[in-house]
Design a protein around this nucleic acid. Structure first.
Lengths: 209, 209
DNA sequence: TAGATTGTTAATCGATTAACAATC
DNA sequence: TAGATTGTTAATCGATTAACAATC
């Protein structure tokens, strides 16, 4: 696994949201401290691994005590950049695009959907968010300084859309089209491969039967 | 990474859908043979890794020639169990549930959505698929011998729903609720963690800025 | 203080890469 | 045949686990 600029492997990075998630649960249950052993029980990662992961970023624990859930979550959130906020647009206002635009959980992660775009004209607002026409997208991205594009268009259009949003200045892409987009230097792309996940499910279904 | 019954690591399994996807592209472009070197260029995996991956399941290539795209895809598809077909239901007929029920790509992978379920009464059909009431779900699963439940209900209901579908005999769960479901022995669970993916995007956005 | 648990180093394990004989 | 490329073994690399001194 290649390491990024900071020297932290992607394997480790992808466990951070899990810590974030379970720490939130612990805090919501009123639990103030947690040991790596208990976190291990909850997350399924080994206690050793958890301590290693966290120590990549600093010593957040205390010997003999463990970790303060609130303080640790604050650190994890800071590592993940949840304090930052990103102007986002959804491209493709179909069911999936609508579902994403309406889902409040993403706003909590710092991604504010400020507009949707579609080739279809005169679509109704989605949860109070305007659906604009695709042809106005690039100007909108430039004018509003949009950070992130969430792509939910059909596969055959996703490369074309990606090129446009990158040229217009978008710095991150969250891609739902079943195609592996690759961004140039300075643009982050996160591909969601639902179909791959389903094929994996298919494999394991076969295994158990 | 733990190995499964067949002795193939999950890391390898999760690359198989990628081979499937790119082989399909090659075949659609009329390309009949491909070397591990060329597959490496396309997929980003190393040629060595590709040969190792495929040889976990058998020697599908030919020295001096490479791989026949059609024959290899057939093998990969068989490994993934795409020839099998699974009766599936979508639980939660919101936008996400509707998007999934309508998406034809999943049917191509062998997952046929035969019904949706929702707590809301008297919902309209989605692409000709009936939306039934949640209270009839367990009987339906038993009567129709449903194999897979696709869960798109809000987080707070997903455990309860999972318990019900498992008790009713479902053998696979594709979970979109932001909660790590764990299945008992004999039940396969594939969790889609969209929010985790978004937090990873957030991390890398911070890195580049 | 005694017990608990971290932070960190060393050991192990698994996955990836390199190399090359086999062979089409 | 000569060139190409696999299948497979060995070497390397990275990630996980084990162990334990430090210390709260």
């Amino acid at each position: 696994m290649p390491k990024n600029a900071r020297g932290i492997s992607e394997t480790v990075i992808r466990r951070m949201p899990v810590y974030h998630r379970y720490l939130k649960e612990l805090i919501d249950s009123g639990i103030e401290r947690v040991s790596s052993k208990e976190l291990s029980r909850i997350t399924g990662f080994s206690a050793s691994q958890i301590r290693q992961d966290l120590n990549n970023f600093g010593g957040f624990g205390q010997q003999g005590y463990g970790y303060n859930t609130k303080a640790l979550k604050e650190q994890v959130d800071k590592i993940l950049g949840i304090d930052k906020s990103y102007k986002s647009i959804v491209i493709g206002a179909g069911r999936l695009g609508q579902a994403i635009a309406r889902y409040k959980g993403f706003r909590d992660s710092g991604f504010n959907v400020i507009s949707l775009f579609d080739v279809k004209e005169d679509m109704e607002d989605i949860s109070g968010i305007k659906v604009r026409n695709m042809k106005d997208m690039e100007k909108y991205i430039r004018d509003e300084k949009v950070d992130v594009a969430i792509i939910t268009v059909p596969k055959e259009f996703c490369q074309e859309v990606a090129k446009k949003v990158i040229d217009a200045g978008v710095k991150g892409i969250w891609n739902f089209a079943p195609y592996d987009l690759k961004g140039p230097e300075g643009v982050v792309v996160e591909n969601i491969r639902l179909n791959d996940s389903l094929l994996t499910l298919s494999y394991f279904m076969k295994e158990i039967s």
